[in-house]
Computed example of a mutant assay.
Amino acid sequence: MTPFEIPPWDDNAEPQGVRLQKVMAAAGVASRRVSEQLIEAGRVEVNGQVVIELGRRIDPVNDQVSVDGVAVQLDPAKRYVMLNKPIGIVSSLADQYGRPDLQRYTEQYEERLFNVGRLDAETSGLLILTNDGDLAHVLAHPSFGVLKTYIAKVDGRVSPQTVSKLTNGIDLEDGPISADKARLLDVDRETSIVELTLHSGRNRIVRRMLHEVGHPVTELVRRSFGPLNLGTLKAGGLRDLTKVEVGLLLTLSRDAIDEVGPPAAGSEESDGSPQSVEETEE
């Protein structure tokens, strides 16, 4: 022990950790005073346990905080961005064939962002860009079954019977598959608009399902990913997720890990990028 180290039994040693209300205020939950009120009201949990003591100290790096059941992001270095990927953009940060890729979007940020999962070049819609490898790994990993919703324009008039077939299950070359939800949005003489919600991460699964029931896709857009919705974000548009949206994603991630367990070790690249987890395209 050096002369400047304080032994753990020293009564004058500084308390370990940071006061919970200070951490909450720094995370943008509320002012320190309002955070104290939330704690006293029993609305705050640390590592799954309700905390009502204002003197509680936590480790912002390792402890998990939630308010009203919604997780709080404590690391200010993490960034979460929504992109409405346009048609013609490859879901890669450096396409080996020189095609337009995601680098034109990620280079706008100081952080080294990567995409969560993929959309093929001819599919547009919601794509998440982040530098949070742990969260991205859960969102992209097939075992966690995060729901995604797509709107497809297809050839032909889709019947109610066909919609039922999509939810009841069909057989593809790589096994049976069923949509979690399916509904017909519009029909005209030559085309139909179908909404599909599913959790499968199989390659080009939406296009293959609709082709199998006799209605090839001509246009496809992903409208939602987990709790996120594309809203009015225009093609090629970017925006940071709100604190509420980040909280919902973190809550989904934590709940999935509690239910399924952590992803298998060794399935992520060493830099935290989840690209090796889900190389599928919808």
Score class of each variant (00 low, 15 high):
13 A>N: 13
110 E>Q: 10
110 E>S: 12
169 G>F: 06
143 S>E: 13
136 A>H: 02
56 R>E: 06
240 D>F: 09
233 L>W: 12
96 Q>P: 15
139 L>K: 11
34 V>L: 10
97 Y>V: 01
112 R>E: 09
192 S>T: 06
26 A>Q: 09
228 L>R: 08
187 V>A: 15
199 H>A: 10
61 V>R: 11
114 F>A: 10
31 S>I: 09
260 V>K: 14
75 D>R: 00
149 T>M: 09
8 P>E: 10
207 R>P: 00
19 R>S: 05
84 N>A: 04
188 D>T: 14
90 V>N: 00
164 S>Y: 04
274 P>Y: 07
112 R>N: 04
202 R>T: 00
143 S>D: 11
125 G>F: 01
232 T>K: 15
253 S>I: 09
138 V>K: 09
185 L>H: 00
235 A>V: 15
189 R>F: 09
7 P>G: 13
219 E>N: 14
224 S>H: 03
276 S>E: 05
44 V>S: 01
257 I>H: 09
153 K>D: 03
108 Q>P: 07
177 I>N: 09
180 D>Q: 11
16 Q>T: 13
95 D>P: 01
113 L>N: 10
176 P>D: 08
273 S>A: 12
131 N>F: 07
153 K>S: 03
196 L>M: 11
56 R>T: 12
65 V>K: 08
175 G>D: 00
203 N>S: 14
282 E>D: 04
268 E>N: 14
244 V>P: 00
180 D>T: 15
130 T>K: 02
109 Y>E: 06
64 Q>V: 09
218 T>C: 01
176 P>S: 01
221 V>Q: 07
138 V>G: 04
99 R>W: 05
214 G>A: 07
271 D>Y: 01
50 V>F: 13
31 S>F: 15
244 V>H: 08
147 L>N: 06
215 H>G: 15
146 V>W: 05
95 D>T: 01
11 D>W: 09
51 V>C: 07
240 D>S: 05
174 D>Q: 13
264 A>N: 11
20 L>C: 07
43 R>T: 11
240 D>A: 04
33 R>H: 10
176 P>T: 03
156 G>I: 08
199 H>L: 02
35 S>Q: 15
178 S>K: 10
32 R>D: 00
228 L>E: 05
70 V>G: 06
22 K>P: 14
113 L>C: 03
93 L>G: 06
263 P>Q: 13
140 A>E: 01
145 G>M: 12
127 L>Y: 01
240 D>W: 04
248 L>M: 13
209 M>Q: 05
162 T>W: 07
12 N>D: 08
226 G>P: 06
151 I>E: 14
222 R>E: 03
53 E>F: 07
10 D>K: 03
223 R>D: 02
149 T>R: 12
56 R>P: 04
236 G>C: 05
174 D>C: 14
272 G>C: 06
75 D>E: 12
274 P>T: 08
198 L>D: 02
58 I>E: 04
109 Y>F: 10
101 D>Q: 00
147 L>H: 13
175 G>R: 01
216 P>S: 04
124 S>E: 13
42 G>P: 13
261 G>L: 06
30 A>C: 12
57 R>F: 06
96 Q>Y: 07
261 G>S: 04
49 Q>C: 10
209 M>S: 06
11 D>M: 14
